[in-house]
Write a protein that binds this DNA or RNA. Structure first.
Lengths: 347, 347
DNA sequence: GTTAGCACTCAACTAAACAGAGTGCTAATA
DNA sequence: TATTAGCACTCTGTTTAGTTGAGTGCTAAC
């Protein structure tokens, strides 16, 4: 065991080949494809060691080896070469966004689509979470009787709205008064601060208005979060069906069912908010159904705050280098794009 | 050929059996399962006739027969027994909606989900098309510089909004003046009429405001249509993978890819607006990719106008009776639900 | 007109034979 | 002592041939 470098060179070669071919890799294949200067017999001995160490798996006695989750983990931690600035990808992303001036949620969805196009893997995004942002303008628009429309514009110019149904009738003049109260008070205030402090000033309103306000306040928080908590968008859902590991109909069905469960994806992406970049390989995933998949996630930001996540799902045998590059660049460009379109635009 | 009744009794039996089993049906199976009082040999002769007439297909020489598209067409046109009031389904639908008070688009999505649950087929909905409705309130809210928020409330209390980016800066007072102009003029006016006539009154505004208005007007139409034109929601996408006819991976992949193309589904559902109820069987579908599927669609209404469609996709061998019943009831209940929630609510 | 009977067809399954990729071990080699 | 050539062995996947069984079409009898 004095020469571990050679072992890992072999492991590296096997991973590379397997990612490419999806077929178990044998010792002779390694000898031929890679110039390691050792014979297949030696490679065989090393492979036996690597298997014992938990890096390789032999599907059956007379087959080659395939990398284990542990091997991929080592690969992404130690071997992977990510080109932080892959010109080709950057160019493609910029081209996609250059012509694009849609609203925020659409931009985020677009990001998933670009990612799928770039990588040919399924990708998904979590819609932006707005709670961290300051409020610029809150309005209550009277619709009829007990129905009102709540419109919130954040400091960054993002607009959210929701229709509310109150328990009592309200008049247009009441909504107007409450709108004024909210605006004078909330102006440029951080959402969390707002939630903490608005109660102090509530005396400025009369009793009936206070009751109305008390029904509206919970909605404000909800509205600012609504899009993120459970809304998720997936693109290229069918890409997964192209991979040889999912040619078996039962597997394909199971994975498709899992990927179609919005709440699952939502949780998954929500959990991924903790790290600005994360890779979960095979059984590292919380969901058993995804134990043959890897998921790479990155967050996107506004004003330095992470406001959402974007991710790629593929077989554990996925092209980590390319995906990591693409995701790095895309999350960065999405961040740029959001900050360009939500602030003043210079075009 | 004097006794066509018997032929079609046999055809009916074959269709029923095949819908159930998905296996080619042979003459002896018919003799056993159905009490037609004739021998398998006679049935064989009739089957040969039915094949010649184009109602049956023999996958290969020594197999039983399967119904052709023409047979299903005859079935739905002539044989099908739809229980307009299936108590079980009606009850299930009402139960689903009873607890539900969400906003319009969510209600429509919910309908697709209920439909999937009831039928175990993929279902899809087109979001409501609002152009036919009257305008109750239009507002322009100033966000910053050249950005404004357009909010439209229809006579039925449905709220739509969009953020617009204008070519010139506007002030809050300008948006206010335009808001007033639009409201005085548009009040209770049908959308189409509004689009035709607003130009007559435009002199009331000064030059700069007219320019701003001219940028807003196209957006008004677009906003009212936006949700319907390309927005479509599909539920139970993976159900299709359960059917034996799609166990072949290539077929499964192809159909999944097709069903994931939002624009295709949007077109399909848009075209289905023409009839309040429609069944397309196999090759009757415009899309080749859906030539092994049947699609049943129904429209849902508001104030007697069709505002959207809801549909079911399954193999041509689908359970037409049950699906037609379910869709009938569901489109009706959705129509009721919409009219209950968009008008005054009596709860 | 209907049906019993039979020869024929064809997909689907099974078993056996075979090829080939790959391993592990042993003995020779540098 | 580490490496490698060589070989027996293992196991999957594919091909081939044979078998089964469901189903047909035709003919002759009822």
């Amino acid at each position: 065991m004095q020469n571990n470098d050679r072992k890992f060179a072999i492991l590296y070669a096997i991973i590379k080949d397997y990612i490419q071919s999806a077929e178990p890799v044998g010792s002779r294949t390694i000898e031929k494809n890679h110039n390691l200067g050792i014979s297949s017999a030696t490679i065989r001995n090393e492979m036996a060691d690597l298997e014992e160490m938990g890096y390789l798996i032999q599907p059956h006695k007379s087959a080659g080896r395939i990398p284990s989750d542990k091997a991929y983990r080592m690969y992404v931690d130690e071997f992977m070469q990510i080109s932080e600035q892959d010109e080709r990808i950057t160019e493609a992303v910029k081209n996609h966004y250059r012509r694009y001036l849609g609203e925020l949620n659409a931009s985020v969805r677009k990001a998933a689509e670009i990612l799928t196009k770039l990588t040919n893997y399924t990708s998904m995004v979590m819609m932006p979470n707005m709670t961290v942002l300051g409020i610029k303008d809150i309005r209550l628009i009277h619709i009829e009787d007990e129905r009102v429309l709540l419109v919130i514009i954040t400091l960054q110019g993002i607009v959210r709205n929701a229709e509310l149904k109150l328990t009592k009738k309200v008049t247009a003049s009441q909504t107007e008064k409450i709108t004024n109260f909210l605006n004078v008070f909330a102006n440029h205030m951080d959402t969390e601060t707002f939630m903490d402090r608005f109660a102090d000033k509530i005396d400025e309103l009369d009793h009936e208005e206070q009751i109305i306000l008390s029904e509206i306040v919970p909605a404000i928080k909800q509205v600012l979060q609504q899009d993120s908590v459970h809304e998720v968008y997936a693109s290229g859902m069918t890409e997964i069906l192209n991979f040889p590991e999912f040619q078996d109909m039962d597997k394909a069905r199971q994975i498709m069912k899992t990927l179609h469960k919005q709440e699952l994806l939502a949780d998954l992406l929500q959990n991924a908010m903790d790290d600005s970049f994360n890779i979960k390989i095979g059984n590292e995933n919380d969901l058993d159904e995804l134990s043959e998949c890897s998921i790479i996630t990155a967050t996107y930001k506004l004003n330095g705050h992470s406001i959402g996540t974007i991710g790629i799902v593929g077989p554990t045998r996925m092209n980590y280098d390319h995906c990591v590059s693409a995701l790095n660049i895309l999350s960065q460009e999405l961040t740029n794009h959001i900050s360009n379109t939500t602030r003043r635009r210079s075009d």
